[in-house]
């Protein structure tokens, strides 16, 4: 225990202080919070009922009654975006969870064992990376049937090698440290060391990568839904809304404008949040993406 990084009692408070002084973090945090609140609000209230089709109101331009206009079935686009936010926000964390839950232990295991095990796992990683992620996600959802759950799994599988790589690289950089040597001398097993010392020390990197994958997951989910492989109608999803908008660009461009902006804002918020966290945890770090 004593070997773990020092976290004095005021550590958390100063961390939060530093965090909110960081412009990227603050902006990203506020945007992400806004999206989350919108998604949660949609469970209790939306301006209009998204399951009710009112053909008389179809493709209305944005106005005071319908801020973002209506779609080809007369549904309120703002309400649909609110409900669609649930979908995007639910898919990405689960997919990141799958990637982290399987990838990180694999990567840390490879780092701890080294040798043939490491080599084999890394070759397996190369293998998954050789398959273009989107293509494989399309294959998985097309084969096992379209739907939100299969989309999550498809995106999750491609998060595994990403986290395996980060977990392994992080662990490899910690293993030669002196406090690890001390822990080994004290008779701790490799598993114990991994759980007690390696994991807490690479948590930061994992958190930063998590926000990146979260953002990428939202983009991937939108892409799959656009192709009709994600959440199925009548459940509104941002990607599907863009698909419906495509053939109606001439009469109702707002049908494409607002769902796309919802995606951009959400992804931007998460990326800023990730940049901010990376800055705060390691001021020297400059994120690659």
């Amino acid at each position: 225990m004593s070997a773990r990084a020092q976290t004095p009692n005021d550590g958390m408070a100063s961390w939060i202080g530093k965090a909110f002084a960081n412009r990227s973090f603050l902006t990203g945090f506020l945007i992400t919070l806004l999206v989350a609140v919108v998604a949660l609000t949609s469970f209790l209230w939306t301006p209009y009922d998204v399951t009710k089709l009112i053909i008389a109101d179809k493709t209305q331009a944005p106005s005071l009654t319908h801020w973002f206009g209506t779609d080809h079935f007369g549904r309120d686009i703002l309400s649909m975006i609110m409900v669609g936010a649930r979908n995007s926000i639910a898919v990405a964390p689960v997919a990141v969870g799958i990637g982290m839950g399987i990838g990180v232990p694999l990567g840390m295991f490879a780092a701890a064992r080294g040798g043939m095990v490491d080599e084999a796992l890394m070759r397996l990683n190369d293998l998954v990376f050789a398959f273009p992620a989107l293509l494989s996600a399309i294959m998985i959802t097309a084969i096992f049937g379209p739907g939100a759950v299969n989309a999550i799994i498809a995106i999750g599988i491609f998060n595994i090698p990403v986290f395996a790589r980060v977990g392994r690289a992080g662990a490899l950089s910690i293993w030669p440290r002196e406090y690890i040597l001390a822990a080994r001398a004290a008779g701790k097993s490799k598993t114990q060391i991994t759980v007690e010392h390696i994991l807490p020390n690479i948590a930061n990197q994992l958190l930063v990568q998590g926000t990146i994958q979260f953002a990428l997951g939202i983009l991937a989910e939108a892409g799959l839904s656009y192709l009709g492989l994600g959440a199925q109608p009548p459940m509104p999803s941002w990607g599907r809304m863009l698909f419906d908008a495509q053939t109606r660009m001439v009469v109702a461009p707002w049908m494409a404008l607002f769902p796309g902006m919802a995606i951009v804002v959400t992804v931007l918020g998460l990326n800023l949040l990730g940049d901010g966290i990376a800055d705060i945890l390691d001021p020297k770090s400059r994120r690659q993406r």
Binding site: Q246, G260, I263, V264, V265, V267, L268, N271, D275
Partner: peptide
């Protein structure tokens, strides 16, 4: 660049179609 990373390319494509084609 931060904004560009967040833009889904197919939505950007739709916007380009609207602007330059329609």
């Amino acid at each position: 660049a931060q904004l560009g990373v967040a833009v889904p390319n197919f939505w950007f494509a739709l916007m380009l179609v609207y602007l330059f084609a329609v």
